[in-house]
Each structure stands twice: as C-alpha cells, then as structure tokens.
Simulated scan of single mutants.
Amino acid sequence: MKHSTQVSDSLGLGLLLTLSGGFMDAYSYLFRGKVFANAQTGNILLLGINIFEGQWENTIKYLIPVIAFSIGIAIADIVRRKLKERKSIHWRQIAIVTEAMILLLVGFLPQELNLVANSLISLVCGLQIESFKKIRGLGAATTMCVGNLRYATEWLCEYAYTKNQDAIEKGWLYLAVILFFVFGAIIGSICIKYLGQYSIFICSMILIVGFISMFYDKEKIMQSKQE
C-alpha cells in the first residue's frame, strides 16, 4: 500500500485520534445524559422521535449538539482557508490543540450543564472529522465507524476475490481503526468509573500527544526528503 507523506494522515496519529473519538462518545453517552457526541445520526433520529412525541426539552437536548457539530466543521474549514499557508505550524495542529483545550473546559462543567458539555464535545468532533479525513492516504473517520466498517468489508471482499495484497492491507487498516475506536470507548468507560466528569481530561491528554507527534512526524518526513 502506497503511504502518504502528509503528517496529518500518519497511522500513529490516526489511531490516536480514533482512540479519542471512542473515548468522547463513551463519555457523552455514559456520563452526559445518553447523547452521542460523534454519531449525529443517532441524535437526529432521537430528535425526530422527540419532536413527534412533543418532548420539547429532549428535542433541544439532541438538536443543539447537532448544530454544534456543524459549527465545528465550519470552524475547521475557516481555519484551513485562513492558515493553510502558514509554515511554522500546520493548521491541523491548531485544530487539534483547540480540541484539547475545549475538552479541558468540559471537564469542569457539572452535570447540570450537560447540554453545554455535549455541545462542546460535538463541536470538537466536528472539528476533528473535518480536519483529519485520511489515514495513510485513505479516507477514514476518526469519530465514527460506519464508513470505516463499510470500507473494511469492501477491501476484504476485494482480497477474497483477487488475492490482491494491497486490498488486504487496506482492509486490515480499517479494521485497526475500528478496533481503536472500541479501545477508546473501553478506556473512556473505565476512566468514567473512577474519575467521573474529570475523565475527559484523559482524552484531552491523548489529543495533546497527537499534537506533539505531528512535530515529530514532520521532522521525519523532512529528513526522508533530504535523503
């Protein structure tokens, strides 16, 4: 499989972001009132059901995170357009450190402010899914699994018929991404049990590690080009 030299779509960073994606979804669902921070399909479904049932308080509970998710996507697009030519720091690094800072804020919000907390987490997920769209040159999502599961199955079926080694590598990559999402959810669940609302700080730390790793990966790419 041909690997991209883009710092932002390295395998290590992609798996870290996927780990954080699973963590955030577990945190918002288990600790913040059973709202999906990442999978807006679930929120939109529950939004429709609550509108039909006239449950207006719950309608707001699911509507605001969907709007926040869209705002996160828009912010990422604006940052990309404004800062993509900057040499000293990549615009995606600005996005990831912003995510980490927002999650730190979420950790200080009591459960009485779950709507605010879930909206901020959804905004972070919107930022992340728009900023990091690929892993090793392949389109992949780090905050949800439906598309990744589809691509994993397609590539594994391709290998079953053609025995193409590239196809099996791509299939395994998508399966690894899904597995790390599950790991993130498991780690999030464990942290919630012992740390409660402050467990989201762990997710923030994961993103900071990703931010730092982008400097390291950039240095490696520059060295390989010189060689």
Rank of each mutant, 00 (worst) to 15 (best):
Tyr159Gln: 02
Asn148Val: 13
Ser131Pro: 10
Trp155Ile: 00
Glu130Phe: 02
Cys125Lys: 03
Gln128Ser: 03
Cys145Ile: 15
Gly137Pro: 01
Val124Tyr: 05
Tyr151Trp: 09
Ala140Tyr: 03
Ala141Arg: 12
Ala141Tyr: 06
Gly126Cys: 08
Ala160Ser: 11
Thr162Ser: 09
Ser131Ala: 05
Met144Thr: 15
Lys134Glu: 12
Ala152Arg: 01
Val124Asn: 02
Thr153Asn: 12
Lys133Trp: 02
Tyr151Asp: 14
Gly147Glu: 04
Leu138Ala: 05
Thr153Phe: 08
Thr143Tyr: 07
Lys133Asp: 01
Gln128Tyr: 05
Gly147Met: 11
Val146Ser: 07
Thr143Cys: 04
Val146Met: 11
Cys145Trp: 04
Thr143Trp: 11
Phe132Val: 05
Arg136Gln: 15
Ala140Gly: 05
Arg150Trp: 02
Met144Ala: 15
Ile129Phe: 06
Ile129Glu: 01
Leu156Trp: 07
Val124Ile: 08
Thr143Val: 15
Tyr161Gln: 03
Val146Lys: 03
Cys125Thr: 05
Gln128Leu: 03
Lys134Pro: 04
Ser131Thr: 13
Glu154Phe: 12
Lys133Ile: 02
Leu138Arg: 11
Ala152Met: 15
Gly147Tyr: 04
Phe132Thr: 06
Glu130Tyr: 05
Gly147His: 01
Cys145Met: 15
Gly137Phe: 14
Ala141Leu: 12
Gln128Val: 01
Leu138Thr: 09
Val146Cys: 09
Lys134Phe: 07
Leu127Pro: 02
Thr143Ala: 03
Val146Pro: 09
Thr142Gln: 12
Gly139Asp: 09
Gly137Leu: 07
Cys157Gly: 07
Thr162Gln: 06
Leu138Val: 08
Val124Thr: 10
Gly147Asn: 12
Gln128Ala: 03
Tyr151Cys: 10
Cys125Trp: 05
